[in-house]
Amino acid sequence: MTELNPYIPFLSEITEVIKHTEIEFTFRMTYSGDVKPGQFFEVSLPKFGEAPISVSGIGDGTVDLTIRKVGKVTDEIFENYVGDTLFLRGPYGNGFDIANYKGKEILLVAGGTGLSPVKGIVDYFSAHPEDCKGFTLLVGFKSPKDVLFKKDFEEWEKNLNVIMTVDTPEDGYCGKCGLVTQYIPEIPIKNSDEAVGIVVGPPMMMKCTITELFNVGFKEENIWISQERKMCCGIGKCGHCKIDDTYICLDGPVFNYTKGKFLKD
């Protein structure tokens, strides 16, 4: 029996394009199969290359891929709209396991585009608030114009404790300002010994956030992170994402902090 070549992508149709900012769109793609928040697909276009994109939403026969226009491949992807097709490989990586968080108090802290790979977790507990003892989403953006998933925030706020902050306010902005870390001590966690923390964002933001979680009593074995690295092959062959003996594309990108704390370049 001939094995399929894991490098060969499949065609996926764009069913919807959602604009968040001038350089960040969500492409809703056809896909049937198992997928978890935090996993990623390699998205490609012939002659232009491919790029790893995290899953930002899971639907019935679709996945959402939120893409930032920052280079050759993503620039070309932005020229494609509903009815067009892109090539996908994946999903890759281990993702976030919702079962790890059910029945717990949950504090999810995200910075900027770090909200994309954990959006599926927020979506799940927003739709099933009875499955946890409490859920706080704390997310920071550079400015009001950089806010992603604005319509989703309106839904999340109905069932979850949502705190959004920006680094640089603009005229007319009436929300919270400052770093996400300054709001962690204010969050009403009933039992920090058993509460779970999920942290995704720029490396320095993650480091400072985890320090604050320790300060309010979180245990390191109850914290999960997602490592952001350039993942090329997705199957542990090229070595681009290797840190010591760990392949981020295979062993991650999601790690419990007891393992993730050792992953340093």
Rank of each mutant, 00 (worst) to 15 (best):
L213Y: 05
G103T: 13
D123G: 04
Y257H: 11
I77W: 02
K150W: 08
L108V: 03
I67G: 11
S143N: 14
V162N: 06
A195R: 06
T85M: 00
V122S: 05
L250V: 14
I223Y: 01
D131S: 07
L138S: 03
G71K: 12
D84R: 00
K104R: 11
F153Y: 04
V122W: 02
V82K: 15
E157T: 13
E157I: 02
T85F: 01
E3N: 11
L108R: 00
K242S: 09
M29C: 02
D75R: 15
P52A: 14
D167Q: 03
F255H: 12
S192M: 02
V122G: 02
S126M: 00
I198T: 12
K207T: 12
F149C: 07
T209A: 13
L11C: 02
T26F: 06
T66M: 01
K19W: 03
A195F: 08
K158Q: 12
P117F: 09
G90S: 10
D84F: 01
I189M: 08
I58D: 15
D97S: 11
G260E: 06
E221F: 14
Y257N: 10
E220N: 10
L88A: 15
G61S: 05
F25Q: 12
T85Q: 12
V82M: 07
F96R: 06
M1K: 08
F214N: 10
I210T: 08
K119W: 08
K264S: 06
A110Y: 04
A51G: 09
K145T: 15
I58P: 00
N100W: 07
E22I: 05
F125H: 03
G140C: 01
E50A: 12
G120W: 01
Y257P: 00
S54D: 13
K259R: 15
C241S: 08
N5A: 11
E42N: 09
L213Q: 07
L179C: 09
V254L: 10
P185N: 15
I98K: 03
V73Q: 04
K158Y: 02
K176N: 14
V17Q: 11
I184H: 03
F149Y: 14
P52G: 07
E154F: 01
E170Y: 05
I189T: 07
F262Q: 14
L45S: 11
D84I: 01
N5P: 03
S56L: 05
E155N: 08
I248H: 06
K102I: 11
F87N: 12
G112V: 08
E194V: 00
G217Q: 09
E50P: 03
I121P: 01
K207E: 08
T209S: 09
